[in-house]
């Protein structure tokens, strides 16, 4: 159970600064906390509440709505097998059954060694590559049962550790907005008509009169 580290708190403050209203940063900060700890802890939610100016209960209220936020420990690898219609038509449900047998857990469960959490998920937008799955939100296409066993082997042995970061890491590249390039991020009530709009409006009014 951990609050954000000083480095992550600094990063969090830079994310909050990108929004006209701090609470908008709630979901990105929950991702940041999950990246730090592998799941979303109570202490992290309390810390996020301080950073975005709401209560910890409100952060929990938001986070609990979204599938990706895990409030308990998960495996190092979240294996999400799609069984929605396009994957179902090409064996997604059978692939999930095979995965359950191979890993020895039901969908939703975590293996005893803490390596894998298996999930039965909704459409992951890889419909033409069915049956598809994601491991920590990285895609694996047209997976046969043999492919699945190979994938598990590769993950266990660390052969895919470059391609698949630990659970919680979302984008390996972050957006960075240099301070001198920021255009106009201020609260809504401080916003006025944009200068280019005003210029064209005045030109049109001038031309009309």
């Amino acid at each position: 159970m951990a609050r954000l580290t000083p480095a992550n708190e600094q990063l969090a403050r830079s994310i909050v600064a990108r929004y006209p209203v701090p609470k908008s940063a709630t979901i990105p900060l929950c991702h940041l906390a999950q990246e730090q700890d592998g799941h979303l802890t109570d202490d992290a939610m309390a810390h996020i509440a301080e950073l975005v100016g709401c209560t910890a209960a409100e952060v929990l209220g938001t986070a609990s709505f979204y599938e990706m936020f895990k409030r308990h420990e998960t495996g190092t690898y979240c294996v999400n097998v799609c069984t929605n219609i396009s994957c179902q038509l090409l064996g997604g449900e059978e692939l999930l059954e095979h995965a359950e047998r191979t890993l020895g857990v039901r969908a939703g469960g975590t293996t005893a060694d803490g390596m894998f959490t298996l999930e039965d998920v909704e459409c992951i937008a890889a419909c033409t590559e069915a049956p598809a799955l994601q491991v920590n939100y990285r895609y694996f296409h047209r997976i046969s049962t043999e492919d699945f066993d190979q994938l598990v082997d590769d993950l266990r042995s660390g052969r895919l550790s470059d391609e698949v970061p630990p659970h919680g890491t979302l984008g390996k590249v972050r957006q960075e907005i240099p301070a001198d390039k920021v255009a106009n991020i201020t609260p809504p009530e401080e916003q006025t008509e944009p200068v280019w709009i005003a210029r064209h409006r005045q030109a049109a009014e001038g031309g009309a009169s």
């Binding site: 979901i27 990105p28 920021v182 280019w196």
Partner: peptide
Amino acid sequence: NEAYAAGLVGKNILGTDFSVDIVLHWGAGA
């Protein structure tokens, strides 16, 4: 990040009075 560095997003885009920030926001599964 490339577009901000090239002056295509952010303050005074292409040297004009047009300025706008584009922020990437992550969803979380819903």
